[in-house]
């Protein structure tokens, strides 16, 4: 079967510093995969390489079997690669519904449409609103994002990515900065993501990782240390050493 997303020998160096070292990584359709590792392991770098925010020094990236290594960020997105950001990257002055509808509009291909067709706009708004209902933030549809509590802003972060109807979704620490009382809401949303989306989650919260992931990849100093099922990872001595040997990061 063709992988939803695959990296082949992905390599990135900044001068003498190697931040991604020969990474072979595969995400199957419908995968629930977690990427963990200590701070500075290169997790966000990997996401930035896959999404095209930074170019790799060597290696290839395949999306649904097609080589996307040379494609610009926006084209990768239109081909089904969605992401969220570790730090909220939202349209803060706009309402929640408008935030999501920007994404839905781009997905429908009407983002550059200058001759407004109200019917097309309504279809976009309805699509966006349905998404808000699914994520249970429809009450705040008209609230400007900057006025929302942080936890709900994290949900908008996910809603925008889902508005693109991605086949592959990269969640960069979706629960980062969320108070523990609100983490459950985010967990619910992540667990209820549609089955046909391949999801890669980068997360420090081990409880979240082990509840969500069916496979886990451990990244250390830019290299893949081990990949396996949650049980294999939990039992692995090297992983314990990385996490427990040099203090807690999770």
């Amino acid at each position: 079967m063709t992988a939803a997303l695959e990296t082949i020998g992905l390599h990135k160096r900044f001068g003498a510093l190697i931040v991604a070292n020969d990474i072979h990584f595969r995400l199957d359709a419908g995968a629930r995969h977690a990427l963990i590792g200590p701070n500075g392991a290169g997790k966000t770098t990997l996401v930035n390489l896959i999404t095209g925010r930074i170019p790799p020094s060597a290696g290839r990236i395949l999306l649904g079997g097609d080589d996307i290594t040379a494609l610009p960020q926006a084209v990768r997105v239109r081909r089904g690669l969605g992401r969220t950001f570790q730090i909220n990257t939202l349209f803060r002055g706009l309402s929640v519904l408008e935030n999501v509808c920007l994404a839905v509009g781009e997905h429908h291909g009407i983002g550059g449409d200058m001759l407004r067709s109200l019917a097309a706009r309504r279809a976009v708004l309805e699509g966006g609103y349905a998404l808000l209902e699914r994520l249970r933030i429809a009450d705040d549809a008209l609230t400007p994002v900057r006025e929302l509590p942080y936890g709900r802003q994290r949900l908008v972060e996910i809603a925008i990515a889902l508005g693109l109807r991605p086949t592959v979704l990269l969640l960069d620490e979706p629960a980062a900065g969320v108070p523990s009382t609100e983490i459950a809401i985010i967990l619910d949303v992540i667990e209820q993501l549609p089955d046909d989306i391949a999801v890669l989650i980068i997360e420090h919260d081990m409880e979240l990782v082990f509840r969500f992931a069916r496979r886990i990849t451990v990244l250390v100093q830019g290299s893949v240390l081990i990949e396996g099922t949650p049980a294999e990872i939990a039992a692995d001595a090297r992983v314990r050493e990385v996490y427990l040997g040099e203090g807690h990061h999770g």
Binding site: R76, V77, R83, T89, G93, C101, L102, E106
Partner: peptide, 17 residues
């Protein structure tokens, strides 16, 4: 609307294609 999106957050506009 997409221009406003660019004004509010260019990085996210790139990320939504």
């Amino acid at each position: 609307r997409s221009l406003i999106g660019i004004r509010e957050n260019t990085a996210r506009m790139h990320a939504i294609g």
